[in-house]
Nucleic acid binder design. Structure first.
Lengths: 206, 206
DNA sequence: TTCTGTGAATAGGTTCACAGCT
DNA sequence: AGCTGTGAACCTATTCACAGAA
């Protein structure tokens, strides 16, 4: 497949969200202009994004809401649910493990690990925090391709190495470090302090 | 000032982090190549990013670590600390309010609001959750220009309107919606389910 | 007539490559 | 010799604009 840009993928995910809303409101079709309005972009952008994957619309009419939603779920790999392991049972990890938005979108946190004996054994929403020592053997029993890393910066690379070694193919990283991974593993780093700093920059430069 | 791209600003924030590490390790100077290595980019990119703001290096030598760090703090508006109000005292809001990474970078959560009577009055790390009703009067007493919004999607726009009305100029939004704000207000939306979806896309398209 | 699909034009961001300090 | 600063070249993403299907 032609290389799809990350911004296109992010927008597809937004479009899907709006399609689902339209679906519950009983709308049959939606135009690129309407999707654009809701997603904060332009109608040309919407059509271009979709055109990378085929032509799903009807000229003069727009897109069939349920058909496009189905197609986007397919494209985004959301037709099946995904098991996710979480490493790090701090406050953020705990909050994320229980975040309803993940489950709603088909991401199911199946295990949470930590190395701190004080945390191991505690419960987060029915999930018992497990000793990180069991990571490899657990993943052998239940291969999982997505992990969320919520450990301190200085522990992150080691954790990621172990996850990669154990076959994880995609990592959502909340530790504020640049991670090294093999080319066939996808990493997305979310750095919340950095987000605030970009806001601070905007405030400072006006 | 010339328009600076968001990606440049994000990288500046990374560079600063590495400079601070180098500083504690007692390094006097650092080259663009070294900064690039640590930030996962190229030396030309580092030099280009910095060049938008002036020329801080010495040819043949590199950059003075403390001088560049100081300059970046200035550029990013981090010479002073920032008060931040948080709206939404759910699990994620609570975790963020206590996130040490914010305080370390000079962002100080000064108040946290919710509308749920069950949450109002509870303590998060010494901070008492206040009734959202007090938002406007509190902000009049203590003008604050950064807010973090961690409320359900359907409440976010209303909260943001009130924040903007009360003078907030920058918003870090964790609600999965596209927010409408006046042009002089900066919004950064972090959508964690969307991040997982981009990973799911990568997994599905290989 | 309306709204899609898509080449072409434009804008924006990244990399190259080299002149110029130190 | 080493490394910065920067115009130019390149590449990627967005917007334009219009032909064509419903």
């Amino acid at each position: 497949m032609r290389k799809i840009s990350e911004s296109t993928v992010r927008r597809l995910s937004l479009y899907l969200r709006y399609l689902e809303q339209s679906e519950t409101q009983g709308h049959e079709t939606i135009s690129s202009a309407e999707l654009a309005r809701r997603g904060g972009t332009t109608s040309a952008q919407v059509r271009k994004d979709l055109s990378f994957f085929g032509s799903f619309g009807k000229r003069g009419l727009g897109y069939s809401v349920p058909a496009l939603a189905t197609r986007l779920r397919e494209i985004l790999g959301l037709k099946r649910s995904h098991r996710v392991v979480m490493v790090g049972a701090g406050r953020i990890g705990g909050a994320l493990a229980q975040y309803p938005g993940f489950r709603q979108r088909g991401f199911h946190v199946s295990a949470i690990y930590d190395r701190d004996p004080k945390k191991i054994g505690s419960r987060w929403n029915g999930l018992v925090v497990r000793d990180i020592r069991h990571l490899e053997s657990d993943l052998r029993k239940e291969p999982t391709d997505i992990a969320i890393v919520v450990v301190p910066a200085d522990a992150a690379q080691e954790v990621v190495d172990r996850l990669v070694q154990a076959g994880v193919k995609a990592i959502l990283n909340f530790a504020p470090v640049q991670l090294a991974v093999p080319r066939d593993v996808a990493v997305k780093t979310v750095n919340m302090a950095q987000e605030l700093e970009t806001l601070s920059f905007v405030l400072a430069n006006r």
